[in-house]
Design a protein around this nucleic acid. Structure first.
Lengths: 223, 223
DNA sequence: AAAATTTGTTAGATTAATCTAACTTTATTA
DNA sequence: TAATAAAGTTAGATTAATCTAACAAATTTT
């Protein structure tokens, strides 16, 4: 069994890996920054994780998770996102409060607990932030969250969350008739100011790039 | 903030204190046994807890919690019992599975989480084992759990749980028409074999001392 | 390609929590 | 009450995770 510290190293390696589309692996300093520890601490731990066959790495090289390490990381992310869903849906935590508590809950060791929690929540596919919840086998089945600004012209997507959670922003979102689970079609993009023309509920609107960078969506299956 | 280890020390001191009706305090070896560590480890930690004003103790003396320490311990017990209730009532864990997981969950740090969990569960007063759940202020308001064998002749009590959870025992309990929340009146006790005559649902039965030592009850208010 | 910068590593120190082994104090019993 | 047993303490070692400071390798810039 892994210590909480080891779990956090694995989780951060995986998260950094998932963020950077490239498959080159993670650097020592990068990981140290992400974990808020010094690179020398990371270096010590890397040797330990390599011993346990959770990562592959050699001196001055990049860090890569082994299949075992990846699976471990995925179950931690799975637990994190299930707990976030629980806190949000069942305990009425707000959107921005769930992360901190889930950081702790994700380390609870009990396979049965995760299974039962999943069932209790009705086998959710995405968490309150719109991020996909990995399966028991560590697979991410649905498309990952993107920003509306990243969707290609002509494609349809579904709104899953917002990045900015300020009252001002949310009010504007509402005025556009946008809300969670709405389908959005990207009609056109203007090179001039990078503004985007979208269609929601058969109603066309034009939004700025900055706005689109704060709307989180997943690509629809019907593309 | 306390480490998980420190929290466990405080919790065990409080539990040993609550178990032993006497108010003499807890011994080093006793605590070491309860925590599954060596007495020398306890000794080191005692100095630390004294520094933090959580316990009172002097060399070769007994360990006593300060008011601050007692409150801390109570909030850990409160969290433990609330989580046990959650696991049992909402996630369909069995009676004997809840403890192990609650041992981990009790260390999650979030006042808001405890409040919201309490509300979600409908402000329960006792946990699945029949033990009282302390209030936010660290008070135990309802009578503590006793064994049926400890109830005086003529008194009424309410069944809250069983100690033995074997199928054989539970079947026998059922045959007597006994179940959770039933009111039991102790009609008489026989000095000869210490058997007890009880009344449940206006039906009289005679049970052995051993049987009565496995039925957990709380005294009724109407005594 | 040499210099400068960034990135990564090593050695040695520190802290928390534990252990073993030797010792001291307190309590029990013969 | 003296001997024995039980309970409690101390010193010194160990492990995990961190740090600082000095150093080495790789990359980027000039």
């Amino acid at each position: 069994m892994l210590s909480i510290t080891e779990e956090n190293y694995i989780k951060h390696i995986l998260s950094l890996d998932l963020e950077s589309s490239s498959n080159l692996g993670v650097g020592t300093n990068e990981l140290a920054l992400s974990l808020s520890v010094k690179p020398s601490s990371v270096n010590v731990m890397l040797k330990k994780l390599r011993e346990k066959a959770l990562i592959e790495y050699e001196k001055y090289g990049k860090i890569q998770l082994t299949e075992k390490g990846r699976l471990f990381g995925m179950t931690i992310i799975r637990k994190h996102r299930l707990w976030e869903t629980f806190l949000y849906q069942k305990l009425d935590f707000t959107w921005d409060e769930v992360h901190e508590v889930a950081e702790q809950l994700e380390h609870i060791q009990s396979v049965k607990l995760v299974e039962k929690l999943d069932k209790f929540l009705g086998f959710p596919k995405i968490d309150p932030h719109g991020d996909p919840i990995p399966t028991e086998k560590g697979e991410i089945k649905i498309a990952s969250k993107l920003f509306l600004s990243e969707i290609q012209t002509g494609k349809k997507c579904k709104m899953v969350s917002v990045k900015d959670n300020s009252a001002v922003f949310l009010k504007f979102v509402q005025e556009l008739g946008l809300s969670i689970n709405n389908e959005i079609e990207v009609l056109s993009k203007l090179d001039f100011d990078e503004s985007i023309e979208i269609s929601v509920n058969n109603q066309k609107s034009r939004v700025s790039k900055k706005f689109a960078q704060n709307i989180c969506v997943i690509l629809s299956d019907k593309n």
